[in-house]
Simulated assay, not measured.
Amino acid sequence: MRQAHRRVVFQFDQRYSLLQNQLVGINGVKLAVEWRGRVRTGLGLYFLGSAVPVNAPLPPTVPAEALNRVRFRYAALYGEYVFLGTPRWELSTPVQVGFGRYYHRYESPDGSVYRSPKRNIWLIEPTVGGHMRVFRWLGVGAGGGYRQALLVEDKLEDDISGVVFYGRVKLFLGDLYKVVRGHERLFSQKGLRRADFAPKQ
């Protein structure tokens, strides 16, 4: 049965992209409010696990042999609609729009390092994902989609846009509070078995 009230959802969101033939991780956390088990809206914070090698042109002040890498971090507003599921599992369509800052890190063969001024970056990421609840208050899931960088240098936009896939761990804080407040078993399957939510014949 769908929840008839709001509840708070917190999740760890680990995203990956294959950029310049290198697997790049983007670490993130999200906090959202869910309405009636169907719609979630919230805020996420993300940062690169490692710098991304890019092919964007080097500025004239940087040696031509320098390695060009980019770092960025951003905050994202997101919305998510659950189009299929039960209290145990679900499929949804999360979309997020991010705004942050990025900079280039140029490393020359002699070890010298140059950094560009920080600039603004916009990102949009439509995805499809799903999760399964291990317990009433804990779920694990995965998904995939596409990241599009906006309003940055043309070549850099091509370098850091691409397919994204992710894994996530979700904490349903409202349900965890109810379990603790009600002195229920922390690791029970209450409410998740088919008999708990299937229509009575």
Rank of each mutant, 00 (worst) to 15 (best):
K178H: 12
I124S: 09
D159Q: 02
G141K: 02
V179K: 07
E90H: 13
S108M: 06
G111Q: 08
S161G: 09
A142T: 09
D154I: 06
P126V: 07
L150N: 08
F135S: 00
I124V: 14
D154V: 13
L151P: 01
Q96W: 12
S116T: 08
P87Y: 02
V134C: 08
G139W: 01
H104N: 09
G139D: 04
G129Q: 15
V179T: 14
L151V: 14
K155N: 09
M132D: 03
L151I: 13
R101M: 09
G143H: 06
F83N: 07
Y177Q: 10
L84T: 04
G129P: 06
G145L: 06
L171T: 00
Y106F: 15
I121P: 01
G111H: 07
E153H: 10
V179R: 07
R88C: 04
F172Y: 15
D110F: 00
G139T: 03
L151C: 13
I124L: 13
T86H: 05
V95W: 06
G85Q: 04
V97H: 09
K178R: 10
H104Q: 11
V82L: 12
G144H: 09
G143A: 08
V140P: 01
V113N: 01
I160Q: 03
H104G: 02
R88P: 04
Y114N: 07
H104F: 11
N120Y: 12
V97I: 15
G144C: 13
G100F: 07
G145Y: 05
E90K: 14
L123N: 05
Y114H: 12
Y103P: 00
G167Q: 10
E153C: 02
V95A: 10
V164Q: 13
L150D: 06
Q96L: 14
V113P: 02
I124W: 08
G129H: 07
E157W: 02
I124G: 09
L138E: 00
G167E: 11
R119A: 13
F172P: 00
V128Q: 06
Y114R: 08
Q148F: 15
V179D: 01
L151F: 14
R133I: 03
P109Y: 07
W137Q: 00
R115D: 12
G129W: 06
G174H: 00
E107P: 01
I124M: 10
L123M: 12
N120Q: 13
L151K: 11
G174E: 00
G85D: 05
R115W: 09
Y146M: 12
P87D: 03
G145H: 05
G100Q: 07
V163N: 14
Y106N: 00
P94K: 06
W122E: 09
G144L: 15
Y103H: 08
D158K: 15
P117W: 02
G143P: 05
L84G: 02
D158G: 14
V163P: 11
F135I: 03
L150V: 15
H104W: 03
V128S: 05
V169E: 00
M132E: 08
P87C: 01
R101H: 13
G174V: 00
L173Q: 05
T93F: 15
K170V: 10
G129K: 09
